[in-house]
Design a binder for these strands. Structure first.
Length: 128
RNA sequence: GGAGUGGGUCGGAGGAUCGCUGUGCGGCGACGCAUGGAGGAAAGUCCGAACUCCUACGGGCAGCAGGCUGGAUAACGUCCAGGCGCGGCGACGCGACGGAAAGUGCAACAGAAAGAUACCGCCUGAGGAGGUUUUCUUUUCUUCGGGUAAGGGUGAAAUGGUGCGGUAAGAGCGCACCGCAUCCCGCGCGAGCGGCGAUGGCAUGGCAAACCCCCUGCGGAGCAAGACCAAAUAGGGAGGCAGUGGAACCGCCCGUUUCCAGUGAAAGCCUCCGGGUAGGUUGCUCGAUCACCGCGGUAACGCGAGUGACAGACGAAUGAUCCUCACCGGCAACGGCACAGAAUUCGGCUUACAGACCUACUCCGCAC
RNA sequence: CGGGCAGUAGCGCAGCCUGGUAGCGUACCUGAAUGGGGUUCAGGUGGUCGGGGGUUCAAAUCCCCCCUGCCCGA
């Protein structure tokens, strides 16, 4: 598994193992994690004792109807995929949970992307 | 040319790179290659089914739902055709459209009265009082009684309408026409329709989306249904081992945990079994399917053959960037491009929706 | 997937079942009382009854369809 992740890391892929899937994982991140805020989202980070970082996304019903929430989650995943390697987020070996705020429903992708990248960058630098 | 009505279709197109995901092939594997990957509403979850499990010997009551007629369908509260009523000049649209002489109930305010009725009025009988008068009489007021639903007035609603006759005054009391009900005749499978056919003078007004009555239908739960595999921990069952003293068993030693006692010590270890949680697999997508074609039917739809099409995820796949061409706004740079995202699967209904197109009609104006 | 509750005056709630007048508290306005304010007393203003249809003479109330918010079960 570790080999596969090492090869995948350079190719900006997004395999299933790097996603948070358990409710317990989310709760642990919320309880013990650090919090970072930005215009469109809230980021929780907690160490996971693994060899890579994982991503979880939450968009409540306040954000919009189903198609809006799906779009926001895809955008978040896309930003994570594109900037995981440049920002060396895997070296944190942590679980990242992004809570999307309702205000993001009206944003364009470019605005949302720049906001989220800045958030990741701030979190990454402060962790070092 | 303008205004409008019904039905139907589409819901940007093509390509490149990166990423996600189902399937197939190759590979121990990592992965590679090929190929597929949101909708007309996927939505709301309002009906109907399929499919699973539960309960079961059948049946009823209760409850809920539906309610003009005929047909379509696996079924339906859906669809088609038709009838009747209402709205619209019309094309057409809308309609929970069985029963009020089975029973119970309701109707504020107003009004005499809202099933059974006389307040005012009109007519009239008897008694009393008064006016007028020579007489015949005539008339006013009042008390008790009778007749009367024409008029007044109230109301959402007051017991067919108009006219003529008739009468003390009136009244379908009688007549004519219109309306209504029943019967008959004709047409229609039927709801119903037509009749200068007959009869009835019309007799019990409204509300059943008030209770209710009649007819028809319905067992309950839902893919987190259900099935299979199954960790850790705790607990359950079976077997074995260990285990203090005495008794018992045995000819004796060794040994045995069958019984009893005791609590100083220990009350544990091993193996197996079943239930079952996390988790995983399955159910899971090709089916009462859809399109084209032929035949039958006014139609919904049915039958038939061939070709083509058809997502299966599970913290839940469709995204990002770029190019070309459409469309809309703007002088331009540029911006925008609806409603909205599959969750077991179908048949409907309802709701949301930028814009574009096809088709059949209606009304008005102008020209021929 | 299935079930339930609520929406009425600026705010918090009755009224709905059993249809005809929308009421209570608070807030607001006016007046009284006080030297002034608060408390108190008297009077008053204020509501598309979430939206749209339907039944009815008449609908906040009965029926149907939507919208919004909240809750529950597997």
């Amino acid at each position: 598994m570790e080999n596969s992740l090492l090869t995948a890391r350079g190719r900006r892929t997004l395999p299933k193992q790097t996603r948070l899937a358990k409710r317990a994982d989310y709760l642990r991140t919320y309880e013990s994690g650090r919090k970072y805020f930005s215009r469109f989202s809230v980021l929780f980070i907690a160490d996971n004792q693994m060899t890579f970082s994982r991503l979880g996304i939450t968009a409540t019903k306040k954000a919009g109807k189903a198609n809006i929430r799906n779009r926001l989650k895809r955008w978040t995943r896309e930003v994570w995929r594109a900037h995981r390697e440049p920002l060396a987020l895997d070296l944190q070996r942590a679980d990242f949970v992004v809570n999307i705020k309702p205000s993001a429903a009206r944003a364009s992708f470019t605005d949302f992307k720049s906001d989220l990248v800045a958030l990741f960058r701030r979190a990454a630098t402060s962790l070092q």
